[in-house]
Lab assay of single mutants.
Amino acid sequence: MGFKLLSKLLVYLTASIMAIASPLAFSVDSSGEYPTVSEIPVGEVRLYQIADGVWSHIATQSFDGAVYPSNGLIVRDGDELLLIDTAWGAKNTAALLAEIEKQIGLPVTRAVSTHFHDDRVGGVDVLRAAGVATYASPSTRRLAEVEGNEIPTHSLEGLSSSGDAVRFGPVELFYPGAAHSTDNLIVYVPSASVLYGGCAIYELSRTSAGNVADADLAEWPTSIERIQQHYPEAQFVIPGHGLPGGLDLLKHTTNVVKAHTNRSVVE
């Protein structure tokens, strides 16, 4: 069995187990497998329904001669939608809004960016022009300005110390501490036991640490421990890039980060 097929099978099995364990909360999309990078042309966006009122959005972007996937989250909030992270750029984010209108038909009224990198804030200006209120932590807003990236308009308070959590509509926002970046936030959907790890969490097929220019490698494993301790009931975990899975993604990420750190020390 090929690795790609095995990865998709694991996603399907995880979703099936969740649907059985929580039949009222989960209505997993039966329309197909989780979209992969090879299936999404740059400039297009796919939506994948995880649970009743919960979707991931998947886009792709060219970077350094390669094409990478990027995940975000959409959560229903009454007759409105909360968006977590842009679709990595203005063109993708405009396509995301169009796809949401086509498939869901509810307005996106608020959006949260989970850290300051372009795959999370690139497209904020498109959201703002569409009347979406954009939010991020003060740290993310400051770092985005320093980096020359787009800056969300509103500040999220109460997320300055490791372990801080605040309720934001249908989700809980959690600051686990520094990891992929010093400002990275985690998003949890309690009604569906869905954990969105953003770039602080890796997919299972990833074996290298990737972009760690703004990471705190020493603190990252401790931050992941905080996530595990705060959300032990999480059933569906979405990484910032690639295929979702279960809580095993947290341990896998820790292993990859520690291996990278150990290699760096040896070198």
Rank of each mutant, 00 (worst) to 15 (best):
M1L: 11
F3P: 11
F3E: 07
K4W: 05
K4T: 06
K4V: 05
L5Y: 12
L6N: 15
S7N: 01
S7Y: 05
K8S: 13
L9P: 06
L10Q: 04
L10K: 06
L10E: 07
V11K: 06
V11L: 04
Y12C: 13
Y12S: 03
L13E: 11
L13D: 07
L13P: 07
T14E: 06
A15Q: 08
A15C: 10
I17P: 12
I17S: 02
M18W: 07
A19V: 09
I20V: 09
A21L: 08
A21V: 12
S22E: 11
P23N: 05
P23M: 00
A25W: 07
A25Y: 03
F26S: 06
F26R: 05
F26E: 12
S27N: 11
S27G: 07
S27E: 04
V28Q: 12
D29C: 09
D29W: 06
D29F: 06
S30P: 10
S30H: 14
S31Y: 15
S31D: 13
G32F: 00
E33A: 09
P35S: 07
T36Y: 05
V37I: 06
V37F: 08
V37E: 04
S38D: 05
S38P: 07
E39Q: 01
P41C: 13
V42P: 08
E44R: 04
V45G: 09
R46W: 04
L47W: 06
Y48C: 09
Y48I: 09
Q49C: 03
I50M: 10
I50Y: 10
D52G: 07
G53F: 12
G53P: 13
G53W: 09
V54T: 06
V54C: 06
V54H: 14
W55M: 03
S56P: 04
S56R: 07
S56Q: 02
I58D: 10
A59V: 06
A59H: 07
T60F: 13
Q61M: 05
Q61D: 04
Q61H: 03
S62R: 04
D64F: 12
V67K: 10
V67H: 11
Y68H: 11
Y68R: 05
P69R: 07
P69L: 08
S70E: 09
N71I: 05
G72S: 09
L73R: 01
L73M: 05
I74C: 11
V75P: 01
R76G: 07
D77E: 06
G78E: 10
G78S: 05
D79H: 07
E80S: 13
L81F: 03
L82W: 13
L82P: 00
L83V: 11
L83K: 00
I84Y: 13
D85I: 00
T86L: 07
A87T: 01
A87K: 00
A87L: 00
K91C: 07
K91N: 08
N92S: 13
T93R: 00
T93Y: 00
A95H: 14
L96I: 15
L96E: 00
L96C: 12
L96W: 00
L97P: 00
A98E: 15
E99P: 00
E99Q: 06
I100T: 07
I100Q: 01
E101K: 03
E101H: 13
K102D: 15
K102V: 12
Q103W: 09
Q103D: 09
I104F: 02
I104C: 05
L106Q: 08
L106M: 06
P107I: 15
V108K: 01
V108G: 06
A111V: 08
V112H: 00
V112A: 05
V112D: 00
V112P: 00
S113N: 15
S113D: 01
S113I: 03
S113P: 03
T114F: 02
H115V: 00
H115N: 00
F116S: 07
F116W: 13
H117I: 00
H117V: 00
D118Y: 05
D119H: 00
D119Q: 01
R120S: 08
R120C: 15
V121D: 08
G122V: 04
G122A: 06
G122D: 00
G123M: 00
V124L: 03
V124W: 01
V124C: 03
D125Q: 05
V126R: 13
L127Q: 04
L127N: 00
G131L: 14
V132E: 02
A133L: 02
A133E: 13
T134N: 14
Y135Q: 09
Y135W: 02
Y135S: 15
A136H: 05
A136Y: 01
S137Q: 10
S137F: 05
S137Y: 00
P138V: 03
R142K: 07
L143H: 14
L143R: 06
A144R: 10
A144Q: 10
E145C: 11
E147A: 11
G148K: 02
N149Y: 15
N149T: 00
E150P: 00
P152D: 10
P152L: 09
P152N: 07
P152A: 15
T153A: 08
T153C: 06
T153E: 15
S155N: 00
S155P: 12
S155W: 15
S155T: 09
S155R: 02
L156Y: 11
L156V: 01
L156H: 01
G158H: 11
G158M: 02
G158N: 08
L159E: 05
L159C: 15
S160E: 10
S161F: 08
G163A: 07
G163H: 08
D164W: 09
D164I: 12
D164Y: 13
A165M: 12
A165Y: 04
A165D: 14
V166G: 10
R167M: 03
R167S: 10
R167K: 08
F168L: 07
E172K: 12
E172L: 12
L173A: 03
L173S: 03
L173V: 12
L173P: 00
F174Y: 05
Y175E: 12
P176N: 07
P176W: 01
G177D: 01
G177L: 03
A178S: 13
A179R: 00
H180F: 00
S181C: 13
T182E: 03
T182A: 02
N184L: 03
N184V: 13
L185K: 07
L185P: 00
L185M: 15
L185Y: 13
L185N: 13
L185T: 14
L185F: 03
V187T: 12
V187H: 01
V187P: 02
V189S: 07
S191V: 08
S191Y: 05
A192G: 10
A192T: 07
A192K: 13
S193W: 10
S193R: 07
V194C: 15
V194Y: 15
V194L: 05
L195K: 01
Y196V: 08
Y196W: 09
G197D: 02
G198M: 00
C199V: 02
C199I: 11
A200H: 01
I201A: 06
I201D: 08
Y202S: 11
Y202D: 03
E203S: 01
L204Q: 10
R206S: 12
R206N: 15
T207L: 09
S208Q: 12
S208M: 11
A209T: 05
N211D: 07
N211T: 09
N211S: 08
V212K: 07
A213G: 11
A213Y: 03
A213L: 11
A213C: 13
A213D: 12
A213M: 10
D214P: 11
D214M: 08
A215N: 05
D216V: 10
L217W: 08
L217G: 09
A218S: 10
W220F: 01
P221G: 12
T222W: 12
T222D: 10
T222S: 10
S223R: 12
S223K: 12
S223N: 14
I224L: 09
E225Y: 00
R226P: 06
R226G: 10
R226I: 12
Q228E: 06
Q228C: 01
Q229R: 08
Y231T: 03
Y231N: 13
P232E: 14
A234L: 15
A234S: 12
V237C: 05
I238M: 15
P239D: 12
G240W: 04
G240I: 12
H241Y: 02
G242Q: 03
G242W: 04
G242E: 06
P244K: 10
P244A: 14
P244Q: 09
G245I: 04
G245N: 05
G246S: 08
D248Q: 12
L249N: 15
L249W: 05
K251V: 10
K251Q: 08
K251N: 14
H252K: 05
T253L: 01
T254G: 07
N255A: 10
N255Y: 04
V256G: 13
V257G: 11
K258T: 08
K258W: 05
K258P: 14
A259W: 06
A259D: 15
H260F: 15
T261S: 02
N262M: 09
R263C: 04
R263G: 08
S264V: 10
S264M: 14
S264K: 03
V265C: 08
V266T: 09
E267V: 07
